[in-house]
C-alpha cells in the first residue's frame, strides 16, 4: 500500500514537472488572470468605451447602472466557464492519448505500477492546474473588482470559488476520460466540451427537474457569488451527482486503459 502510494507520488511529481517544463503552469494561470482582470476593467470602462466608439448620435445619454461587485465576480466566473474551460480542456485533451499514441505509455505501464495510479497522477496534475489557474484568476478579479466597484465579502468569493472549482474539476475528469477513450485529442476535446455544454444546457433549461446535474454547478457558483444558493437540497444532489460521476469517470478511464493498453 505504502509503496504504491509512493509510486503515485513519484508519478504526480513527474506530471507536475512536465507542466513546469512545458510552461503550462505559467501560461494557463496567466490566461485566467488576464480574463479575471479584463472583466471588472471592461465593465468599469464600458460607458467610456461606448462614448468613444463614435457612432452614437450627438447628445444621446447613456446610463448604465453601476453593477455590484458581486455581479462583476459572477460575470468573471462566466468568462472562466467559457474561455477558461476551453483553454483547460485544450491543455488536457492529449494527456493520456498523446502518451499512448507515442508509445511512451506502454513503457510506463509495463512497470510494476497500478494502472489506476497512472490515471490518478494525470488527474491530480490536471486538477492542480485547474484549481491553481482558477484561484489566481479569481483573486485577481476580486482585487480589481474591489478597487473599481467596491468590496465583496471574502466568504462569498471563497464559496463561489469552491463551487466553480468543482465544476472545472468535473470538466477535467471528463477530459481525462475522453482522452483515454479516444485516440484523437481533437475528438477528446470536442466530446468534453460537447458534454459539458449539454449538461449546462439541460440544467439551465429544466432547473427544477435536472438541477441535480453537474451542469448546474456553474449557476450555483454565480448564485453563491451574488447572494446565496436558493435551493440547498438540489445543490446537495448536484454535489453528490458530480462526485459520483467523477469517481465513475476515473474508474472507467483506468478500466479502459487496462483493457486496451496493448493496442499501441
Amino acid at each position: 500500500m505504502t509503496s504504491s502510494f509512493t509510486r503515485l507520488l513519484v508519478m504526480v511529481q513527474k506530471e507536475l514537472l512536465e507542466l513546469v517544463r512545458s510552461l503550462k503552469l505559467l501560461w494557463v494561470p496567466l490566461v485566467f488572470v488576464l480574463l479575471g482582470v479584463m472583466q471588472p476593467a471592461s465593465m468599469y470602462y464600458m460607458p467610456l468605451i461606448l462614448e468613444k466608439a463614435g457612432n452614437i448620435t450627438e447628445g444621446a445619454v447613456i446610463e448604465i447602472p453601476q453593477p455590484l461587485g458581486s455581479e462583476v465576480l459572477a460575470q468573471t466566473l462566466q468568462q472562466f466557464g467559457t474561455l477558461g474551460l476551453l483553454v483547460l480542456v485544450l491543455v488536457g485533451m492529449s494527456s493520456v492519448s498523446g502518451e499512448r499514441n507515442s508509445g511512451a505509455a506502454s513503457l510506463i505501464l509495463v512497470k510494476p505500477i497500478a494502472v489506476f495510479s497512472f490515471t490518478a497522477s494525470k488527474w491530480t496534475a490536471l486538477l492542480l492546474l485547474a484549481w491553481g489557474s482558477l484561484s489566481a484568476g479569481y483573486l485577481a478579479s476580486w482585487y480589481y473588482t474591489g478597487l473599481l466597484f467596491g468590496d465583496v465579502q471574502a466568504s462569498k468569493v471563497l464559496g463561489s470559488l469552491l463551487v466553480f472549482g468543482l465544476w472545472l474539476s468535473f470538466a477535467m475528469t471528463l477530459t481525462l476520460f475522453f482522452s483515454t477513450l479516444l485516440r484523437s485529442s481533437a475528438a477528446a476535446a470536442f466530446s468534453t466540451l460537447g458534454t459539458a455544454a449539454a449538461l449546462s444546457l439541460l440544467a439551465g433549461l429544466l432547473p427544477k427537474k435536472l438541477g441535480w446535474l453537474p451542469g448546474s454547478l456553474s449557476s450555483f457558483a454565480y448564485q453563491t457569488a451574488v447572494s446565496d444558493i436558493a435551493n440547498v437540497s438540489l445543490f446537495g444532489w448536484a454535489l453528490a451527482c458530480t462526485f459520483t460521476l467523477m469517481a465513475a469517470a476515473l474508474t472507467g478511464a483506468s478500466w479502459l486503459l487496462r483493457r486496451s493498453s496493448a493496442i499501441d
Partner: peptide, 14 residues
C-alpha cells in the same frame, strides 16, 4: 512485473 525489464522495438520516452 517487478522482476521483468522490458524494451520495446522503438521505445519512446518523454
Amino acid at each position: 512485473k517487478v522482476h521483468i525489464g522490458y524494451l520495446p522495438q522503438s521505445p519512446s520516452f518523454y
